[in-house]
Simulated assay, not measured.
Amino acid sequence: MSNDFHHKPALFDGSAFEAFQGGEDPAKINRVAHETAGALLSRVRDDPDPAVIDRLLAFTDDHGIDAIAELWSRASAHSLPGSLWRIYLLRALILQDPEQAAYFFERGSQGIPGIDPVVAGAESPTGPKEITELADQILRGLFTGDFAIALDRASAFCRIMAHGCAAIADEAELGAPDTASTLTTRALRFETIGDDLSQSATLWRHDNLD
């Protein structure tokens, strides 16, 4: 991983994404997750200081994805901390290997039906630079723009990535079955997170995302 993106040695193992299963039952969620997520979002949206937002964007670059995971990864998928965790997780995955992420995204954009590429809002063609900018735009949108739209963009991104991973997995199935299996698992993870974020966007619009 390039030092342009991280100031410490690699702090995010892609295998964590493959093993991602989502949040726990709401009854088991740590209250601190909700309090910290709510306080952070309110603080920044009430006074969107560009310097503060820049630090939030770079937080996992400096401290690692584990620092966020300790706060929010156990929260329900359809909650404020759970949604923030998923956006940070997606950004960390992109920065782990922006060239690979861009390749998956481009493959997905070429074949996916509907308007997801438009909703996601990446520049086309989408290379490593553009996919990295998209990750930052989505995360920044949580703090400065319409929160639901930011979640919708992330959800569309996930569906595109799932489509791209699945397409490449199909091509690899005969010659590289292990690779095909890994990509199929990754496609399912993207699809699950995309669904979660879409539901969270709906909840936010109805003032029910706690």
Rank of each mutant, 00 (worst) to 15 (best):
Q100W: 09
D146R: 12
V119Y: 00
S124W: 07
T144I: 08
L84K: 03
G141W: 04
C158H: 05
T144L: 06
L84P: 01
Y88I: 11
L134D: 01
V118Q: 06
I160K: 00
Q96C: 13
Q137E: 13
G164D: 01
R153P: 01
Y103T: 14
E130V: 12
W85G: 05
R107M: 09
P98V: 11
R153L: 07
E123W: 10
G82V: 09
A92L: 01
P128Q: 10
Q137V: 10
V118H: 06
L139N: 02
A169R: 06
V118I: 12
A148L: 00
T132L: 10
A92H: 11
A135S: 15
D170E: 13
I131F: 02
S155F: 07
I94K: 03
A92C: 08
G82N: 03
V119L: 08
A154I: 00
P125H: 07
F143D: 05
K129L: 13
I94D: 00
A172I: 09
A172G: 03
L142K: 02
L90R: 05
L93Y: 10
P117I: 08
R140M: 11
R140T: 15
E133Q: 14
A122L: 02
G82S: 05
C158W: 06
Q96I: 03
I87E: 07
F143E: 08
A154M: 10
P125R: 00
A102C: 10
S109F: 01
L142G: 01
L142P: 00
R153A: 00
A92I: 07
L95D: 06
Q110D: 07
D170V: 15
K129E: 12
E99G: 12
S83D: 03
A150L: 03
A166M: 08
G111N: 00
R91E: 10
G111Y: 00
I131D: 01
A148D: 07
G164T: 04
D116S: 08
P98T: 11
A162Y: 06
Q96D: 14
V118W: 04
D170A: 14
A172N: 05
L84Q: 08
Q100T: 15
C158Q: 02
D146C: 08
D146N: 14
A172T: 08
I168D: 07
C158I: 09
G145V: 08
V118L: 09
Y88K: 10
S124Q: 12
A172M: 14
G114H: 07
G111L: 01
I87V: 15
Y88N: 11
A156S: 09
Y88Q: 05
L142C: 14
I94V: 15
R159Y: 02
P98R: 03
L84V: 09
Q96G: 13
A135T: 02
I160Q: 04
K129M: 07
E106V: 11
M161S: 13
P128H: 09
F105I: 02
T144F: 08
L84A: 07
A150M: 04
I138T: 08
D116R: 04
I160R: 01
S109H: 06
Q100M: 14
Y103L: 15
A120P: 06
Q100R: 13
T126R: 04
V119T: 05
Q100S: 13
A122E: 02
L142D: 02
L95H: 15
